[in-house]
């Protein structure tokens, strides 16, 4: 870019930083208040909510309550199983369908694409009544399988849409070279195309993962039993029971925040690259 006139560019940068810092504080402050206060004694939480814990006020009593009363490790494991399994099926089935739609010309191709894309705009929640009946009929209520099935269906439309955009860019010469060498269509897909669209898969994974991990609706309706509670539902129920025990509530909230926050800090670069790349498509 050509350098812009230097007039008031310093002032403009200062104003930009002021606005962005102000908004960053708004975005992070509530999270910090919760995490910081979870390490304090009950008295200190109320007396000086905005100060950091010191040697006098530091306390882990909330975490002890959470560990003793709630089965968070188990909830965490449930969430992990549901999220990873759904993600696996969304990526595998989504990539296969995207490959079929972008690679082959057959009758009904664009109609099929439109059919699969409908689910991007129409939320799966609207079918909840019939989904519950289906799961009752199939004996899947209060199983993680029910959640995995629902989340797979929920994630597929966007996955197919984004992945087929990316698969159109994979060079035809490469695939045709593979065909001449006698590779089957399956080998071409799994060995040639899939590795090439790995960045797009990461984008889809992030888009798919966050709503699944954070969902409250389907765990509440399809799998509210103690053995199948996810972290989100577990935290919701736990907090509901311990509403007056502020130490426990703040600790439970912090425990729910920290794993996601750590993962986010590790993967934020890919996440943001994914969103910006996906949006340009």
């Amino acid at each position: 870019m050509t350098p812009r006139p230097a007039t008031n560019s310093f002032g403009r940068a200062l104003a930009s930083h002021a606005i962005l810092i102000a908004y960053t504080v708004i975005a992070l402050f509530p999270v910090l208040v919760i995490v910081v206060n979870s390490f304090k004694q009950r008295n200190a939480i109320f007396r000086s909510p905005l100060s950091l814990p010191n040697s006098e006020t530091f306390s882990l009593v909330g975490y002890e309550t959470v560990m003793a009363q709630g089965d968070f490790l188990h909830y965490f494991q449930n969430s992990l199983v549901v999220t990873v399994a759904s993600l696996f099926f969304v990526l595998l089935f989504g990539a296969m369908a995207a490959f079929a739609l972008s690679e082959y010309r057959f009758r009904g191709n664009s109609l099929m694409g439109l059919y699969l894309a409908l689910g991007i705009m129409i939320p799966i929640r609207l079918g909840t009544v019939a989904i519950l009946q289906l799961m009752v009929a199939g004996g899947l209520v209060n199983t993680l399988t029910a959640l995995i099935l629902v989340y797979t269906a929920q994630g597929l439309p966007l996955a197919v849409f984004i992945l087929s955009e990316f698969m159109k860019q994979v060079s035809d010469d490469l695939k045709n070279a593979g065909r001449i060498d006698g590779l089957s269509e399956y080998t071409i897909f799994f060995r040639l195309v899939l590795p090439l669209v790995r960045p797009a898969m990461a984008t889809v994974a992030v888009f798919t993962m966050i709503p699944i991990w954070n969902d409250l609706w389907f765990p509440l309706i399809l799998a509210p039993a103690e053995e199948t509670k996810t972290v989100t539902l577990g935290a919701q129920v736990f907090i509901g029971q311990f509403v007056t025990n502020w130490n426990a509530v703040l600790s439970a909230l912090s425990l729910a925040i920290l794993p996601v926050l750590v993962l986010y800090i590790i993967f934020s670069r890919q996440l943001i690259a994914g969103i910006t790349a996906g949006a340009v498509k």
Binding site: A97, F99, G119, I124, T152, Q154, V160
Partner: peptide, 23 residues
């Protein structure tokens, strides 16, 4: 083509589209 499309279309239809119309 059918093999590639079938899993996605089946899951999507069975868990999302049919329940939506069922509702």
């Amino acid at each position: 083509i059918g093999v590639f499309l079938a899993p996605a279309v089946l899951v999507y239809t069975a868990i999302m589209v049919l329940p939506l119309f069922g509702t």
